[in-house]
């Protein structure tokens, strides 16, 4: 069997500000994601889930620890190395509308990574239309501005953007939290289908344990920056070991 696509070792993030006490957002997190696997991270807001996502995508600088993607250490990648990293890892954000430049069309946003990969303008247009169709959006959405589309539509476009360069790992940072319950289901369905079709690994960050249940192969529970529990969704939900996990489950199910 291949090695893990993502391997995180003793990852720690401490936010320090002058005149204020340090905040340890992530404390000694260690976990792996295998190729094609979907790992869920659940926890309440402030538990450090998003910080983990931002460090893996190099949008935040870790304080300590190491991150390996496909065997290569990416913990401190900068410049061109970091740009190359984004051919392997992509992210879907919590705020669908705000994740698109308000002054550019959705098509521009979806096609930007293709353009950077050196594709011609005409080919980008064609590919964007195909990607939007894959994500269940008509081609006309390529010419719409973010404020002309709903949250669900923008999130579909954001998923199209994320899969454009066929990443090996997709990080979904609360990708469904800002959406209506019915649309949440649609988006989860879309992600599940894409994951199968593209054989893509997924790091699914979510505060709703019910959503994680069907979608993820394994889950981690984070609490105050620490990973307090790990296992398959069934194990975690049926027989939680930690008091905190029980509370989290009781509050949803």
């Amino acid at each position: 069997m291949d090695g893990p696509i993502l391997s995180v070792r003793n990852l720690t993030k401490i936010f320090s500000r002058r005149g204020q006490p340090d905040v340890t957002a992530v404390n000694d997190a260690t976990f792996e994601v295998r190729p094609g696997e979907c790992l869920g991270i659940i926890g309440e807001s402030g538990s450090g889930k998003s910080t983990v996502a931002h460090m893996i995508t190099r949008l935040l600088e870790p304080t300590a620890g190491q991150i390996f993607l496909d065997g290569e250490e990416i913990t401190r990648l900068r410049g061109a190395g970091r740009r190359r990293l984004y051919q392997k890892v992509q992210m879907v954000f919590q705020t669908p509308v705000e994740s698109f430049d308000p002054r550019r069309t959705l098509g521009d946003g979806v096609g930007e990574s293709l353009e950077n990969a050196g594709m011609s303008a005409a080919a980008v247009r064609e590919e964007v239309a195909r990607l939007l169709a894959v994500c269940g959006l008509p081609a006309e959405f390529a010419d719409r501005y973010p404020h002309q589309a709903s949250g669900g539509e923008c999130q579909r476009a954001a998923i199209a953007r994320a899969i454009a360069i066929r990443p090996a790992l997709l990080v979904c940072d609360e990708a469904t939290s800002a959406l209506d319950v019915t649309i949440q289901r649609d988006v989860i369905g879309l992600l599940a289908r894409l994951r199968r079709e593209l054989a893509m690994a997924c790091l699914f960050i979510c505060h709703d344990i019910a959503l994680v249940q069907d979608f993820c192969d394994r889950v981690l529970v984070m609490h105050r920056g620490r990973i307090v529990e790990r296992g398959t969704p069934d194990e975690v939900i049926r027989s939680p070991r930690e008091e905190y996990t029980k509370m989290l489950i009781d509050s949803v199910l």
Binding site: Y86, F100, E112
Partner: peptide, 12 residues
């Protein structure tokens, strides 16, 4: 803003 992070992730 989120769209700047997205722009970074596009490899620009």
């Amino acid at each position: 803003s989120a769209f700047m992070k997205a722009a970074r992730l596009s490899g620009s």
